[in-house]
Design a protein around this nucleic acid. Sequence first.
DNA 1: ACATACCTGACTAAAATGGTCAAGTTTAGA
DNA 2: TCTAAACTTGACCATTTTAGTCAGGTATGT
Lengths: 141, 141
Amino acid sequence: MKLTSKGRYAVMALVDLARFDTINPVSLRDISLRQGISLDYLEQIFSKLKKNQIVKSTRGTQGGYILSKKPNEIKLNNILNAVDEKVKTVQCKKESKKGCNGRATKCVTHNLWDELETHINTFFEKKSLQDLLKDNSERVN
Amino acid sequence: MKLTSKGRYAVMALVDLARFDTINPVSLRDISLRQGISLDYLEQIFSKLKKNQIVKSTRGTQGGYILSKKPNEIKLNNILNAVDEKVKTVQCKKESKKGCNGRATKCVTHNLWDELETHINTFFEKKSLQDLLKDNSERVN
DNA sequence: ACATACCTGACTAAAATGGTCAAGTTTAGA
DNA sequence: TCTAAACTTGACCATTTTAGTCAGGTATGT
């Protein structure tokens, strides 16, 4: 399982977007400056967010990104999946005749990681962008 | 955050140990063969488990490892911490005057990762080796 | 036309991962 | 007492992932 900066950046950027896209599209440049994330890296991230229909883009001067849906309809789960931060805890070979570790049976921890995966996914499915906005409504930055 | 093979191996090895240490210490060699984990790697893992008083060792012929406590007293949390698979989701610089990203404020997702961390830790604190033994009591391997 | 901003893909330094290898020390049992 | 089994320690390493950078584009509002 992995939960690294990419996922964090994606969430940060989208919270930023949710705050500022009410009138005009928001440029990555602005997000980059406000959130302290490299512009080039943001472009990679937004490319994936766009492919997953989480944001929409407008090109040209005054262009930028806006959210595709309302903040309460965008779950953290959607965001993290979009940037390939899928919650994956076990690397048991699926569909092979043998189970984990090349054995006939599943490794003794197999069910455990499955449970954990569900546990974490549930957490992210419940949280929406809206929830984060609310939590940080008093913040300046 | 990271949850990789090392943690999985540690749990697998301890479940194995819990099953077989009733009479004699169990050698890493045996665990290695039964669980399909490299012996050398197991040695690294058990070195840490020992430092954290999760297992005790006996040297020499017929030596090996036994659990320091009863299976129901060993929480998964203890195991994963011992092998450095601490649940860590954010790399915000602690104790610096500035918050995440070198800003004066915490990044908007700071609380989120904190919550997740608690969420996951709670999961592991509730699970003991005993629980895993029970789940797999019918297994052959 | 030109500046702004999106778009794409190749590239890379540094860190983490999942080990291996070598050289011990300790102790049970023959 | 000798020796093999088993623990102990630390260095080393190939591969993969991460977190970007860089170098080009293309589209479009003014």
